[in-house]
Design a binder for these strands. Structure first.
Lengths: 205, 205, 205, 205
DNA sequence: GGTTAAGCGAGACGGTACGTCCGGTCTTCCT
DNA sequence: AGGAAGACCGGACGTACCGTCTCGCTTAACC
């Protein structure tokens, strides 16, 4: 059976949680530049070795602390149309990124991915691709439904959507903006939010 | 007169250049994580103090080394239409970001901006805003010309264009892609590829 | 009765012996500086707790491993005269200390005694004083026999004899030397080699 | 010329002295087991690197701190006879070793020499051999003078003298003892301190 | 034959110090 | 006054062991 216990003292769930909480608090308070393994260990009341035993770097601690949240909090339920699905997905994503603490965490993860190539891989698999997969559910459904525009391929849609979101987080520090959601939905789903009748009147003057 | 020399020995141009070259080489060889002031100084045959005297951080050395290039190499000359202007701008930008050495430099700058708030400001003013200003020339010209779509506001266009570019650089490490340029131009300038009536003479990059 | 068994699982003699053997091997291979509780446990195939349960420190493991040997192997049988007794005692002691493995062990014990005061007490009682007691048998017998010089008191004799032995072990790493035994016997038992009248039958070692 | 300065900032004499003082204080207060590089650095107000730059180990700091003292404080001036020279030398040595602070230092050095073979070599050359050389001055003078007993060779005299001294320091912690000095002088120089007339009356009963 | 009690291998835990790296500052002489 | 050299104080790194603490599992004696 797979349920067998390995020998020896089992891992402390309390220590694991204390470490994740301490890391999130510290990155919110001091920024990623001020985040150190020693600081996390001290705040969590834990030996440094306990951190090194389970995570390869401080960024991996943050990754574990933050990865699940995005999955759980951004819905991909069917809203009846591609445009509606996209709008709900974008709105939830942007709302999430608007929590200062979470935005700081995302900045840290992306920064570390630029510095440490090994972490970049784990970040891609454990976070970025998961988010793309979530969006793929929406585009797949739209294709089956028949209301997916055929020119910006789903992969390009993901590049544009996540690119715009990340740019706001990393470069302008203003992730949320309802108007931006409207513009993206309009541009990608060709469905002006309030004017469903004459969509592309302003396309060419 | 402003042209008066301050007393004492003038700044060594040779040292300045050796430092910039050493920094670029090192960031290309070892990545930003392996870039240190001591390493730059050793490679450039320079005292550490000489670096600290003129730059606030290692990232600022890179910023000076790389900032001017983008300005010079991405043209904003009038191509006759908004779509054409955009296509040329995007193509040049993407081509630039496709140099591995330059992409590594951009990754380093964006990473440091997430870690060091003071540098983030200098990076915004010295690089990001300059790129947005370049794009603004194109949208301003399009507005005067009359072929600027009014729904995605110019600022949003910049978010989408640069967001997609940066996302490719930071997250997927595949910045250049002619198809992506096509899709963005189509989506933002409303030039469906199925409309051969338009002036897509410059489509081939 | 004292022979009653306490409840619970009895101490494992196999583990005890494995620990003593592992400690002796490791101290011989890596020196005392490379001897660790974790290393002993790993080599002996034993949990660390099993060592901590029975010995206060790694040095006490060595003490138990090596203490008995000296008692057993250095004879104090009556040789007929103080000089002869002394000669046999010294010869055996020096010969013992000439085993490299045992010398390394003695060095370790004396070193730890300088570092850990509590161990120093156990070392004195469990080793040093036992050796002095063995020598005291010889001096007592000489006093009763009447051939004990009265000026270097027995305690001083012990200081000189063991001092010289330990100095050779600790400082010069050349414990054994037949000529040294001769000199010490001559100096302490007043048997000038130039006086062939005396009973130097046992001179040749 | 040899007096040329190397380039760069010269070594700080203040830091060097602060480190030696801190090490001596700490070893006296906490014993060698409680002496750490970090503790020395903290007490001296010095970076750890400054210690590692100039000394290979904490014991070498103590060696430098203590080595010169013995040379300076134990006189080898001519007292007119071998016995008198020896008595003065022994008295000064024992008096020196009776300073608790210095005795603790000597214990630390000898202990470390048992643990670290590389340090043992430096200790021998930098301390032990120097002390033997000092004693050799006395035996050489005695030989020239003609009052050196010929049987315990000078090397053996050194083994006995320093052996007894070290044994008292390491094993009994009672280095000084005027009676011990008398006994050693008598035994090695065959000159009872107050009874120069009938030297060896009690030699054989 | 089940209960109780302790020893045992294993290994995670909170700590402390290690020896190294680098940051940013300073002190020296030279240009 | 700038610059090369390099020592300085400081702080975090990642590692090695310390001595302690759970775990599940023997291995006995006792009921």
């Amino acid at each position: 059976m797979t349920g067998e216990r390995p020998p020896g003292r089992p891992r402390s769930e309390a220590a694991r949680r204390a470490i994740l909480v301490a890391a999130l608090e510290l990155v919110a308070e001091t920024g990623y530049g001020g985040l150190t393994i020693e600081g996390i260990a001290a705040r969590a009341g834990v030996g440094k070795q306990t951190i090194y035993r389970w995570w390869p770097s401080r960024a991996d601690v943050l990754l574990e602390a933050g990865a699940a949240k995005a999955d759980l909090l951004v819905p991909v339920a069917d809203q009846g149309s591609y445009a509606a699905d996209l709008r709900v997905f974008l709105g939830a994503s942007y709302r999430l990124a608007n929590h200062p603490q979470l935005a700081e965490l995302l900045r840290a993860l992306m920064a570390e991915a630029q510095i440490d190539a090994a972490f970049a891989g784990r970040f891609r698999v454990g976070f970025l691709e998961r988010r793309r997969d979530a969006l793929a559910i929406i585009t797949d459904r739209a294709r089956q439904r028949g209301d997916l525009p055929d020119r910006p391929a789903p992969g390009t849609v993901a590049d544009i959507v996540f690119g715009t979101l990340w740019y706001r987080i990393l470069a302008t520090h203003q992730p949320l903006d309802p108007q931006l959601v409207n513009d993206l939905v309009e541009v990608l789903a060709s469905t002006p939010p309030a004017t469903p009748a004459g969509p592309p009147a302003e396309r060419r003057s």
